[in-house]
């Protein structure tokens, strides 16, 4: 369970054959009680677990909506069914649901569905998007498969798999490519299916420190971490970010960070494509935090323009002394 009593939902994504099911089996072996599993496709390895639901992806693009506004009807039905069965006592209490997507699925519609369904949004809370990446084939897949790039950008946690089969250099390159696309993601290296703790519904999505900038930026995707000299004005930030996403949504791929808005604890911001996770107000700063920051992953937008615009809106909103700087 997450704070507020909602059931944690972990989205497990990753390209075909990247080791999703192996990781899931390991996780269930140690944490199976109270965990329901929803899978989209039967892989070569079956999942032996009493609470498995198989769904066939049924996506409905909402009228007038953009691509991320795709409602996963299959998930709505299955999650509501799980709730009904739990409430009627046919199932034991559910504390977590792991949704294993198909290899080519975009995780963002799953988050959209959880956040917008009038029943599910009060019963389930996204915990993290965990993505598996095969170290042997990562370079080619990132290059050729747009689905893989989308999965990495949406990830809170990337588990690099098959590292026992790949040379050390390939694993290092794999980490570097992930860093180029998504410097906010936590990266762990899995050997023979270990590292399944990534699926545990902890605060895996929250990082106290801004990530290091990649040594060699990706040719299409830019990322920048912004820092601030003072607390931000929250209403002005809402105006600015809403306007930015409205105007530049398709090119703002991800925003993540911790914001000091002058309260005891920070606000956790997490935006995947155009889906804004409800900002979470923490009671206190994480132990490893060193001030507030925001990371932007964008396509074709000069990071300096984002910093300048945010600073101007903050000053116009009443924070005359606030300055925004790009963190090295």
């Amino acid at each position: 369970m997450t704070s507020g009593g909602r059931r944690a939902v972990t989205v497990l994504s990753g390209f075909l054959g990247s080791g999703k099911t192996t990781l899931l089996r390991r996780y269930l072996a140690g944490h199976g009680a109270g965990v329901a599993v929803i899978i989209n496709e039967f892989g070569a390895i079956g999942v032996d677990h009493h609470l498995v639901r198989m769904v066939e992806e049924q996506s409905v693009l909402l009228q007038g909506g953009c691509v991320c506004c795709t409602r996963r009807e299959d998930l709505v039905r299955t999650l509501r069914d799980l709730l009904d069965q739990e409430n009627s006592g046919k199932l034991p209490p559910i504390s977590q649901v792991v949704i294993e997507t198909s290899g080519i699925a975009d995780p963002v519609p799953v988050l959209f569905t959880l956040g917008t369904d009038p029943v599910l949004q009060h019963q389930f809370a996204p915990a993290a998007v965990v993505v598996t990446l095969d170290a042997l084939n990562a370079a080619a897949q990132i290059e050729r498969q747009p689905e893989v790039r989308k999965q990495i950008i949406a990830a809170d946690w990337v588990v690099v798999t098959k590292t026992d089969l790949a040379p050390f250099e390939a694993v290092s390159r794999c980490r570097m490519r992930v860093r180029q696309l998504n410097p906010t993601a936590r990266i762990t290296v899995s050997r023979l299916g270990d590292g399944s703790d990534a699926l545990a519904p902890t605060r895996g999505a929250v990082r106290g420190l801004p990530p290091e900038a990649p040594a060699a930026p990706h040719s299409e995707v830019q990322s920048t971490a912004l820092g601030f000299n003072a607390p931000l004005d929250w209403p002005a930030f809402g105006v600015w970010l809403g306007m930015l996403l409205q105007a530049r949504g398709p090119d703002v791929l991800r925003i993540k960070g911790l914001l000091d808005i002058g309260d005891a604890g920070p606000v956790v911001m997490n935006v995947a494509q155009h889906v804004v996770h409800p900002p979470e107000h923490l009671a206190a700063w994480p132990a490893d935090a060193d001030g507030s920051y925001l990371v932007f992953i964008t396509r074709g937008i000069d990071p300096a323009r984002i910093a300048d615009s945010l600073e101007t809106f903050q000053r116009a909103g009443g924070r005359a002394d606030l300055s925004v700087r790009e963190l090295a």
Binding site: F112, T116, W234, G238, Q246
Partner: peptide, 16 residues
């Protein structure tokens, strides 16, 4: 919830 296409599914906007 989605600020790009402005589909409204929650009573209160995230920023509010």
């Amino acid at each position: 919830m989605c600020v790009l296409c402005s589909q409204m599914f929650t009573e209160i906007h995230w920023s509010e």
